[in-house]
Design a binder for these strands. Sequence first.
DNA 1: ACTTTACCTCAACCATACTTGAGCTTTTAA
DNA 2: TTAAAAGCTCAAGTATGGTTGAGGTAAAGT
Lengths: 151, 151
Amino acid sequence: MSNEATWSVGRVAKRCGIKVSTLHFYEQKGLIRSWRNQGNQRRYKPDVLRRISVIKAAQKLGITLEKIKDTLADLPDNRTPTVEDWERLSTRWHKMLNNRIARLAKLRDSLGSCIGCGCLSLSKCPLYNPNDEVAEHDIGPVLLNSKSSAT
Amino acid sequence: MSNEATWSVGRVAKRCGIKVSTLHFYEQKGLIRSWRNQGNQRRYKPDVLRRISVIKAAQKLGITLEKIKDTLADLPDNRTPTVEDWERLSTRWHKMLNNRIARLAKLRDSLGSCIGCGCLSLSKCPLYNPNDEVAEHDIGPVLLNSKSSAT
DNA sequence: ACTTTACCTCAACCATACTTGAGCTTTTAA
DNA sequence: TTAAAAGCTCAAGTATGGTTGAGGTAAAGT
């Protein structure tokens, strides 16, 4: 290894348990960054590992790559992120998670009473009602989530 | 309307707030059923409404159409499902939801301590660790979820 | 009767999140 | 020094969950 503080794409992939192609993909999507060596090969700073771990964690929470990217965009570009930087992300997702957990719990509690009940007025049924979805929008900046409803 | 107890694809779509194409799609995927009238048009029994409401609810819970289909397969084919039939589904998903909520809560609690921490050994980090995923498998029959891990 | 609306099939297309493969270059290890 | 391993780019393919459009038939309204 030419530099202890520098990672090749293969090393990162192996360390993180993901494929090289995924790293390419994330880079192309703007989720991670690299520079090139003389032979045009990607090189990474060690903090890419944490970035990837955060990406993977966020995905487990059901956050899309787009939103993850938006959130990661708040990390400083010019310097290596500090513990505080990462904790801001954490706080953000923590809030969103609380939200999501609450929604799931609500849904769970609706299940028993609703599935078997006589309420076929789907527009009023708590199970079917899309109101709950709104809460998701308080994560990440701007979020042009302009999905129109079906007709 | 020729028959009060019979629904056309358009009526169902409007009532459920989904598109006709979605109904076609669900039928093609085996999630719902219909018979044809003399002019080859789809006709539905009223319980298709509940079926769709359940499908939509399950999707909100993050269940895939495949799993939903597997679970719906437990409903009787020969007769209209009873309240008990629907409640069996409900119970099943209720359990799964509890599971998922617990996992999310765990993840949420890991967030603060992990994102900012020094643990870059991703294979051990509770945030990154895929162990939690196993719990999902207790929903639906058989589930040949043969995804090999990345290398 | 005739026009409009609804419905039909089939193929193609969209987004997300990646993976695979071809063809070629760079690094690394014996 | 040379062969294997690793990396590069770009295009195409995979799976999920639908949507859109073309070209044609059926049913409903007036």
